[in-house]
C-alpha cells in the first residue's frame, strides 16, 4: 500500500465523522436563522397607537400618517377612524355604547407597526416622547409591560441560542480535531521514518494536507445532502415551520458548511502534523 493509499484508507472514517458533525452544525445554523426570523416576526408585531386630538382635519391626519410612513422606524401604519374604532369597541363590548352615551367619545388614531430593530423599550420610549410633541397628537399609547416582556424573552432566547451555538461549535471543532489527530497519530511512525531518511517537511505534509482538503470537500457535500434530505422531509410535514424557499439563507448555510468543512480539516491536519513532525523519539511511544 503506497503512502497516499495508506492515508486514504483512514479517510473514510474521517469523512463519516466530519459529515455528521457538519450536519449538526448545519441544523443549528438553520435554527439560528429561523430563530432570528421568528424573533423579527414577533418584534414586528409590536406597535403603538397615536391618538389624534379631537377636531383635527382628515387631510392633516393623512399628512401625519405619510410623515410617519416616511420615518425609518415605521414598517406599516393603519389609520383608524372614529367610526372604525367605535365598530371595533362595539364588537368587543357586544352592545351599542353610542346609543347609550349619545355620542362617539373615541378619537381618531394611527396604529404603527415598527421595524424589528426599533421594537425595544428604549426606542419606543424615545418615539413616544418625540411624537407626543406633535400638536396634532393627543397621546401616544403602547403596552409598555408587554413590550418589555417580549423584548426580555427575545433577548434571553437569543443569548441561549448563541451560547448553545458556540458550545456546539467548540464541541464540533474538538470532535473533528480529535478524529484527525488520531488519524495522523496512527501514522506517526511513518512520519518519523520519513524524517529520519531525509524527507523534507513539505514532502511529508503534502499528501496529508491535500487529502485533508478532499476530506473536507467530501464531508461537506455529504452533510449538505443530508441537510437537504432532512429539510425536504420537514418541509413536507411542517410547511409553516421551515422556510426552505429562502434561497439566500440556504446558500449561506451550505456555503458556511463547505468552507468550515475544508478549513476545519485543513487546520486540524496542519497542527497535528506540526506536532508529529517535531516529536522526539522518547515521546513517540507515549
Amino acid at each position: 500500500m503506497s503512502f497516499k493509499n495508506k492515508i486514504k484508507s483512514s479517510s473514510m472514517s474521517i469523512v463519516i465523522s466530519m459529515s455528521l458533525v457538519l450536519f449538526v452544525l448545519g441544523i443549528l445554523g438553520f435554527l439560528l436563522l429561523n430563530a432570528n426570523r421568528l424573533s423579527n416576526h414577533v418584534k414586528q408585531n409590536i406597535g403603538f397607537s397615536v391618538m389624534i386630538k379631537e377636531g383635527v382635519k382628515e387631510v392633516d391626519i393623512m399628512q401625519l400618517q405619510k410623515l410617519i410612513d416616511s420615518k425609518p422606524y415605521s414598517l406599516e401604519t393603519n389609520w383608524i377612524t372614529k367610526e372604525d374604532a367605535a365598530t371595533d369597541l362595539q364588537e368587543e363590548l357586544g352592545e351599542d355604547f353610542i346609543v347609550f352615551l349619545g355620542y362617539n367619545p373615541l378619537l381618531e388614531s394611527i396604529d404603527i407597526k415598527l421595524k424589528a430593530t426599533y421594537a425595544n423599550p428604549d426606542s419606543l420610549l424615545l418615539l413616544q416622547k418625540k411624537l407626543s410633541k406633535n400638536d396634532l397628537i393627543h397621546e401616544v399609547f403602547y403596552q409598555k409591560d408587554l413590550v418589555e416582556k417580549i423584548s426580555e424573552n427575545v433577548r434571553k432566547m437569543s443569548v441561549f441560542l448563541l451560547s448553545f451555538c458556540i458550545l456546539l461549535f467548540i464541541i464540533s471543532f474538538t470532535l473533528i480535531n480529535n478524529t484527525i489527530r488520531l488519524s495522523v497519530y496512527s501514522k506517526r511512525f511513518l512520519i518519523r521514518t520519513m524524517k529520519l531518511v531525509g524527507a523534507t517537511n513539505k514532502f511529508i505534509k503534502g499528501p496529508f494536507l491535500s487529502d485533508s482538503i478532499y476530506n473536507g470537500i467530501y464531508s461537506s457535500l455529504v452533510a449538505i445532502c443530508m441537510l437537504l434530505a432532512v429539510f425536504q422531509l420537514l418541509q413536507n410535514d411542517m410547511p409553516d415551520f421551515l422556510n426552505i424557499q429562502d434561497l439566500k439563507s440556504m446558500g449561506i448555510i451550505f456555503a458556511s458548511i463547505f468552507v468550515a468543512g475544508i478549513l476545519f480539516t485543513w487546520l486540524s491536519t496542519f497542527f497535528a502534523l506540526r506536532k508529529y513532525l517535531r516529536i522526539k523519539e522518547s515521546e513517540i511511544y507515549l
Binding site: T193, V197, G198, A199, T200, N201
Partner: peptide, 21 residues
Amino acid sequence: DDNISNLRRKLGIVFQDFQLL
C-alpha cells in the same frame, strides 16, 4: 529542518530497530 533533511540524505542510517515499513 530543511538542512537536516539535506544532511540525512547524504548519510545512510541503519537503525537499531530497522525502521522498515
